[in-house]
Computed example of a mutant assay.
Amino acid sequence: MQQLQLEASWDKALSTQDREHIKKLFNETKQQHYSTIVFAPIREAINHRNELLVTVLVHNFTSFPFTFENTRLVYSNEQAVLAEQAFTLPALTIPANVSMPWTFIFPPGSYTQGASLWNGRLDIQ
């Protein structure tokens, strides 16, 4: 059975509104019954450093813990690839059958500036 977990810093920092939004998204997407890693989009933004922030709910539907070790992520829409970056996140391990929110940061140069970056999809390549 899929469970929602929050990394400690997320648990402290999340507003009540964001926490409720994530719980609702989890309840809507936890029954997908894949045997892989699936990303459910939460939001996108550009920060003050011109980095693309893609916040997703990472569903680990596998029976093994998942870590990001030089894991290439692709953010795209129906027309094109908008961003690509390899991520190594030693502090992030998503246990088996657990869903966790996370923000992936794409630095300038790893995404197409000027493109419509909203409502994309994040996938492992």
Results as ranks from 00 to 15, higher is better:
M1P: 06
M1C: 13
M1E: 12
Q2Y: 09
Q3A: 14
Q3S: 14
L4K: 03
L4T: 00
L4D: 02
L4N: 01
Q5F: 13
Q5K: 07
E7S: 14
A8H: 13
A8K: 14
S9C: 03
W10N: 08
D11P: 00
A13W: 09
A13E: 13
L14K: 00
S15W: 07
T16N: 08
T16G: 06
D18Y: 05
D18T: 00
R19A: 05
E20L: 10
E20Y: 08
E20T: 07
H21F: 15
H21Y: 14
L25P: 01
L25D: 06
L25T: 06
L25S: 09
F26Q: 01
F26D: 05
N27T: 03
E28C: 02
E28Y: 11
T29S: 10
K30V: 01
Q31V: 01
Q32H: 12
H33W: 09
H33K: 13
Y34P: 00
S35K: 12
S35F: 12
S35D: 15
T36G: 12
I37G: 05
I37L: 15
I37F: 14
V38I: 10
V38C: 07
R43I: 05
E44A: 09
I46N: 08
N47I: 05
R49G: 07
N50A: 10
E51H: 14
E51M: 06
E51A: 07
L53T: 06
V54M: 04
T55K: 08
V56Q: 04
L57R: 01
L57E: 02
V58R: 01
V58E: 06
H59I: 03
H59Y: 13
H59V: 01
H59D: 03
H59S: 02
F61V: 00
T62C: 12
T62H: 14
P65C: 11
P65G: 11
F66H: 15
F66Q: 13
F68C: 10
N70P: 03
N70H: 15
T71R: 11
T71P: 02
T71N: 11
R72L: 14
V74N: 08
V74K: 08
V74D: 07
V74W: 05
Y75P: 00
Y75D: 01
S76P: 00
S76K: 15
Q79N: 07
V81M: 04
V81L: 05
E84Y: 05
Q85S: 00
Q85L: 03
F87L: 04
T88A: 10
T88P: 01
L89E: 12
L89I: 15
L89A: 04
P90T: 04
L92E: 13
I94N: 03
I94P: 00
A96C: 06
N97H: 15
N97R: 13
S99G: 02
M100L: 12
W102Y: 15
W102D: 03
W102Q: 06
T103N: 06
F106R: 04
P108G: 07
P108D: 08
P108C: 09
P108S: 10
Y111F: 15
Y111V: 04
Y111R: 03
T112R: 14
Q113R: 11
Q113W: 02
G114I: 02
A115Q: 04
A115P: 01
S116M: 09
S116P: 01
G120A: 07
R121N: 11
L122T: 03
D123E: 15
D123G: 10
I124V: 09
